[in-house]
Design a protein around this nucleic acid. Structure first.
Lengths: 226, 226, 226, 226
DNA sequence: GAGTAAGCGAGACGGTACGTCGTGTCTTATC
DNA sequence: GATAAGACACGACGTACCGTCTCGCTTACTC
């Protein structure tokens, strides 16, 4: 994603140790001092790494953070299946899978669309409060607003895969007759996802379980009286 | 909003000329070279103003831009009523008022909620493409994501007043029986406003009149079959 | 000294109060924080005076300080005669007049040139240690090194009048046959005055009564054996 | 002399090129526009160097100038012996060595103290008129008056070595019976050096060969009649 | 198993912008 | 009309990072 320039460095000789240290430093700094005060020099110093090692492999601090956050997400995702296996057979299964990494695990399909959405959105609300997750995503989102190239990459690699899970679930609901057949799932999901995203990103309102429940209700049943 | 610090400067002595020049320079630079490359030194130089004059009255470049954009919006709003009077009596009235400053003018109330919303959202779509408007709002939104204090000010002074117009229109529709009486208008409006906002800000999808029409349909009638 | 510009201000309306306050502030600041950190703004603030009042009457902070110091010297000189009258008739007369302001009072003439010079130089040594005197003179001397116009004014108004006293005393000694008749007193005085000045100004050596006594000896009797 | 701060930079990596360019720029600016108008930014710009490169290695513009001038003196001193060899055997030898760098070359010892001193002081008078030499020394002297630390460094590194040459010559004269055995050479030299220094630095009188000849006469033979 | 070339840590470098301070000019209101 | 107050355009301050560069050092891969 960031290499393969003309005279690109030889990635087979790349130091795994440094890469990990850079990821860790970048994420930690964004959490601790915020994105604007996080500098490449600061990341290098904290990672115990030369600046050039960063410039060799990435093009900007946003690039570094995007990869670092991607890596964090993958780690988290890889961690969940194990939990799921370990926890198999016991009560509260959905609760469990909701809490962390539900995104890449798919949305539960109990046959009751409204219930499934409420569950997933409640889990998302909880997740949005984890600063280890919040600080970097806000930072990347902010950078993306003003830097279209990065913004599109952020959406493509992080956001869209999540949204696809909603598309799948909605399509399944459509087959089950719970959603109008003429509805485009990619648009439909925005009715509940975007309001939550906006409230979170722009502080336009409080984020609670009640709120997301309401969103699901309004979106499924419509604002107009039946 | 930005003065009244301890030992604050005497605002009666303030140079109106400089303030205007700073607003103009800030907006122009954000449009021309982008927010990150816009610097306080650059604004000062372009405005023909000393740096200290900026630091005396504002705390950061985001502060400057927020006020400048606010001022721009007010100017635009003040310009519309005149246009409306001049254009009174002719066809395409709504088109006209939709194009610019429809926000502060209130949402039309023809009795047909769906039609009114479609109209307003189409006008918004058009407006979002004006770079004089787009560049500063993206910049402020981006800054607000990562700087909560500014984010809240951005929302309170720029966003919320716009949203209130939707609240009013939805309440009127409720009274007319076109919206479920148990619906909270402040949440309801997010069903169509937030998706549009997200697509625009985060490049998560194309923005067209067809898209906003669809949003209105889904939101009013719901995703579930009737 | 610094006024009478083209459109010079009307000095009859000048505020005596402000002038005194400016002198006091300038001298105090030079003593307390040093000449380089003394600023016109600082002087104005401390004197409770507008900056323009300083710029109206003086051309630079060196100008202010020069006048302030001149004023201080005159005050000191005016104070001594009174002391002398009060102390008339008692022993230790020379001691007394040596301590302060001996400069403008003339050099004692007891008939013994060597003794008189030793006395006066010892008194000067003592005076050089008073910080109220040292700080401003160093400052003015320093400024004068690098600003010829001010340097010459400094010499003409402050230094040369002092040196003239030595010229007078040496001439008197010449008449008494204690100094070679072919000697130019204006040059001769430099043999003991300049070494002391240089040691003081440039920290090239310690300044003691023994040192000045030695200077007088070497200067009068010569370095070569008799 | 100016490095070895806490967390000092690695002087082995220092750019010789930049150092030379900074010396040249500093000296040139002091000559061209004067010391007070010489700024660190100006030096950096003229040297084609980042400001930080100056701040990394020096603490102030006076520091820079002191080192630059020291370097210039050493260069000059290194240049003279070659000239002397080249010029060996021809007339006007002393004239030659007097003109430049006589200081570090030692004072001639022809056996005639008066003649040797007259020669050296005349050469010094000539040298004091070279603006490449005058501007920086005045500047450093001025700074030293008001900044004791720098003043002492100026004296120790530049002035005192010169004075030591006089001490040596006077001691030799003492051994030859041309100077009173009880005379302290370090003080004695001030009788002719300090007057010249003061006239030069403070514009207290004209500087000519006749003047320095007179100083030598007065100092050696004394003011009192024999 | 020696030679070589790349990545690496470190950090100096030429720059740009920061936010602050002081300059000298100007304007306003007060006396 | 001089004054206290202080806003203003300007320019330098000393600092922080930028992105590039050069220096040994270590670590593979090649011969």
């Amino acid at each position: 994603m960031a290499s393969n320039n003309p005279t690109s460095p030889d990635s087979t000789r790349r130091s795994e140790r440094s890469r990990r240290a850079i990821y860790d430093a970048a994420l930690a700094l964004v959490v601790e001092i915020g994105y604007p005060k996080t500098t490449i020099e600061g990341i290098a110093a904290r990672a115990g790494v030369g600046k050039q090692t960063i410039y060799r492999w990435w093009g900007s601090k946003a690039d570094v953070l995007l990869e670092a956050f991607l890596d964090l997400s993958e780690q988290a995702a890889r961690a969940v299946p194990r939990e799921r296996e370990e926890g198999a057979g016991r009560e509260g299964r959905e609760e469990q899978e909701g809490r962390e990494g539900q995104e890449s695990q798919g949305i539960p399909d109990t046959g009751d669309l409204a219930a499934d959405l409420r569950l997933v959105l409640r889990a998302t609300v909880d997740e949005l409060r984890d600063p280890r997750f919040e600080a970097p995503s806000r930072a990347l989102a902010a950078e993306g607003l003003v830097n279209e190239e990065l913004g599109r990459r952020f959406v493509a690699t992080l956001l869209e895969p999540q949204l696809q899970l909603y598309v799948d679930r909605l399509r399944s609901a459509q087959e089950a007759g719970q959603v109008r057949p003429d509805v485009d799932p990619r648009i439909a999901l925005e009715l509940f996802v975007s309001p939550l995203a906006q409230r979170w990103l722009q502080y336009t309102g409080p984020i609670t379980h009640a709120y997301t429940d309401t969103l699901v209700d309004y979106a499924l049943n419509g604002l107009a009286p039946r």
